[in-house]
């Protein structure tokens, strides 16, 4: 027992190391992209009539006059302590993100939770009655929605539920703490983000359960006359779990990327508004900071998926 415990810890430690190495590679890639492309933050924020000397002064202020190697080390070394550098306007990126980022993670996290519950429910419902009308309706609607851009769904939801039915607010108001003022304001943004991912993951659940149904131990359980609900929870789902976890993990990036557009429509107080400002100002350090922290969030979900996969593999052995 103790031996298997140590083996499990070693395995988890290895998974953790691998994920951290991949995250470090992403951060290096972000730096390289910003570095390799023409133009820097000092140029980008230059205003009309500003002299070359003014731009140079800001370049020194932003540390852009240092050699590439020094800046790379500074960027990589600052990240573990949460130092994401300064924006082109000279404010620390971390403090700019401190207010909006938790709101975006709340939105993305809720959307992920809704996605998991709805996709599992719909996928299992369809899989319990293969080939039935229910199965075909669920599969066809899942396919129909999975390619839709989130902002298009957001517009449709606003029109139907906010403007015509008047049931839910069309825009998000921030409370005194900067978070959305009421829970009802989260409903439409979460739905707009979750609907395409529910479509995608419901198909994965349905497909993984169908693959698992071909296994011999499942056929034996069917012959034993076990109720189909028990076969689903005890024989099909455990084996299908790794594929489902991998699918949900790929959805995390889609949710956080789509949140930027959805937040704009609902005027949600998240990083979307900050990024829109950064697009207008060409403020690269802010984008790089958001990419870095998004990478951390996705890494956490991928680690959870790794752990589920390792656990499922252990159970099977």
């Amino acid at each position: 027992m103790a031996g298997s415990g140590i083996a499990a810890i070693t395995r988890l430690a290895w998974l953790l190391t691998r994920r951290i190495a991949l995250l470090a590679a992403l951060l290096a890639l972000v730096f390289a992209v910003v570095e390799a492309l023409p133009g820097d933050a000092a140029d980008a924020t230059s205003e009309r009539g500003e002299s070359v000397a003014d731009v140079e002064r800001r370049r020194v202020l932003l540390g852009l006059d240092q050699p590439v190697a020094v800046r790379f080390l500074r960027w990589m070394a600052g990240l573990p302590s949460g130092d994401l550098g300064v924006s082109a306007r000279g404010e620390p990126v971390l403090s700019l993100l401190a207010g909006p980022l938790p709101n975006t993670l709340l939105l993305g996290g809720l959307a992920l939770a809704v996605t998991v519950v709805a996709a599992l429910g719909l996928g299992c419902w369809a899989a319990l009655r293969p080939g039935s009308m229910t199965d075909r309706v669920i599969s066809a609607s899942a396919t129909a929605v999975l390619a839709l851009p989130e902002f298009v769904i957001a517009v449709a939801l606003v029109l139907v539920f906010a403007l015509w039915a008047g049931l839910l607010p069309a825009a998000t108001l921030a409370g005194p703490d900067g978070a959305p003022a009421a829970w009802s304001m989260l409903v439409l943004p979460v739905l707009a983000l979750a609907i395409p991912q529910i479509g995608w993951n419901a198909r994965i659940v349905r497909g993984a359960l169908a693959d698992e149904a071909k296994a011999s131990h499942v056929a034996a359980a069917v012959l034993d006359g076990l109720p189909s609900r028990r076969i689903l929870t005890h024989h099909l789902l455990p084996g299908a779990l790794p594929a489902i976890a991998a699918g949900v993990a790929t959805s995390t990036g889609m949710l956080l990327g789509g949140a930027v557009a959805v937040e704009t429509i609902f005027n949600y107080p998240g990083v979307g508004a900050l990024l829109a400002g950064a697009v207008a100002d060409r403020d690269t350090p802010i984008i790089a900071g958001v990419v870095a922290l998004t990478g951390v969030a996705i890494t956490c979900v991928l680690l959870a998926a790794d752990a589920i996969r390792a656990w499922a593999a252990g159970v099977r052995r």
């Binding site: 992403l26 023409p38 133009g39 980008a44 990036g253 930027v260 990024l275 060409r282 990419v291 998004t294």
Partner: peptide
């Protein structure tokens, strides 16, 4: 394979923002 593992951490929309902003005039 490794590059794909790394890019999994970068949502496409954010990646495009990063590239288009770092490349003014692109």
């Amino acid at each position: 394979e490794r590059v794909a593992d790394v890019l999994m951490l970068l949502p496409a929309v954010l990646g495009i923002l990063l590239v288009t902003l770092s490349w003014p005039g692109g």
